[in-house]
Design a protein around this nucleic acid. Sequence first.
RNA 1: GGUCUCAUAGUUCAAGGGAUAGAACGAGGGUUUCCUAAACCCUAAAUACAGGUUCGAGUCCUGUUGGGACUACCA
Length: 593
Amino acid sequence: MEIEQFITKAVTTAIGALYGEVDPAQIQIQKTRREFEGDYTLVVFPLLKLTRKSPADTAGPIGEYLTAHYPEFASYNVISGFLNLSLSDRFWLDRFAAIADDEAFGTAPRTGRTIMVEYSSPNTNKPLHLGHIRNNLLGYSVAQILAARGHRVIKVNLVNDRGIHICKSMLAWKRYGQGETPASSGMKGDHLVGKYYVEFDKHYKAEIKELVAKGMEEDEAKKKAPIMLEAQEMLRRWEAKDPEVYSLWETMNGWVYEGFDVTYKALGVDFDKVYYESQTYLLGKSLVEEGLQKGIFFRKEDGSVWIDLTADGLDQKLLLRGDGTSVYMTQDLGTAFRRFEENNLDEMIYVVGNEQNYHFQVLKLILKKLGYDWSDHIYHLSYGMVELPEGKMKSREGTVVDADDLIRDMVETARDMSNELGKLDNCTPDEADAIVRTVGLGALKYFILKVDPKKTMLFDPRESIDFNGNTGPFIQYTHARIRSVLRKADETGIDYSGNPAQATLLPEETALIKALSDYPATVAAAAENFSPSLIASYIYDLAKQFNGYYHDHSILKEENPECRRFRLQLIAQIARILRKGSALLGIEMPERM
RNA sequence: GGUCUCAUAGUUCAAGGGAUAGAACGAGGGUUUCCUAAACCCUAAAUACAGGUUCGAGUCCUGUUGGGACUACCA
């Protein structure tokens, strides 16, 4: 970023001297494409109106001016409408020294802004699946990225711990569970509760079938099935804080939380604050009252409260049921209000799937109409679904990819591959466990995060996630190799600290310094777009570039000690940025693998 | 029906209106007495269709076709 600013300034001066005042928007600097000579390129097409000359005749004098007046510019060339500028080796070496000296490189100074990121938001009636994994990894990574940009970040989880779906698993457990517990069954708590959720559905379907066989309409049977009526009764008893129901609810949710904690820990995600819907579901009613008074909402004859958004191209939306109980939107209005008030938030980010685009559109609009300007600072980070080759995952059809299973499979695959390659031969069992865990999760996380969050992505359970090519392990392997070289340098007593008296650079070395220089701008872009995938592709490119360099040029065996000193410092910085960048994705870099 | 979204090699993903559309997997071929071959190098292979805006379009606009999501007094 800084470099591009410097060039833009120099170019502006040059054009000013040669052709007169230029609109800054017309100055387009971009990185020179690899197949051309040069570091940065000025696109001259937009300038032709000002210069009234051909592209070549416009570009040539600018290049001439820059190389004559600035020592930083070593040379230039013009190809059609593009002025390619090469910066001097001295410039790049200074640049490198500045990066190496900057302990906070890639981390922005404190902004004083507070941003809340809500992610995960699970239901407590079944275990987490691949969709949740994408949500969790995205939320965690975005939080890290925003923190790196100097913001104060509050990570929160809003647990959906109440409602009819919770009662379903509770009821099924009560009826058919025979006192089964995670301890007695050896099952993880969330999976055990999920089992009874499925069990409920099985019996529910059977009852519907029975009623239909007796001549009842199917829609009617769905409402009248005894098990469903009982679940609804259970919900009413829960809301009345019936001690028996309430204690069962606490027990079973406790099992689920224990299970979730294991999964969260395995994924390496965490939260600063956990909200429970059972404690927030009554919020928002005062806002409804306020809206009614302001005449923004209206009440229908049955007592239900609505807002008419047809003028905004949307529909009418229910805000309060006829019986005065709240709905999802009521709660979300309430929690948003409370969060902004209590935390003095500058921004609130909801990491929620794109199936809820409509909901958030309405939420923002309602708050706006109520006169809360902070509604502009609500951002729905709307990510795409993870689909299977057959389409969307459906829990009822048993096509979900379970989070715990997938994590376990990844680690086991990492173990098999590592053993096959003989990578764990000199490790203690503990070291081996740590490595395969890091690599397996690295593969999974990179696989998910390299995709643009907005896009629907595909996961094929029949094909295992790759460990070669554009993958997490590729980057981890690159890092491990660098660390290995640096270890060897230390072991053989090579001291590579201090300023290298290196004066010239290989083109690959210039390219690597250039890549390192791009890191802060990459983090900034990732933060602006809420897109960890930008970081993923950045660290992949950096690793790829290093691998080519490493293949062609010896580091430890380089005979010129100053050259060797520089190379060791260079690769140390590459390892550092690989580690920093991947940390923003929640991916660890092993010392060896 | 309405609203929104997506369409790029065989497959999974890239490409802030800019040069000859990049990678990876898969396919074919090659590299190891040399710092970790989970690596490196070479070959073949793609912008759904039709218009438009622009000096310049995978990218912006319109239409067509084909996917997906949403459109509950569920959360």
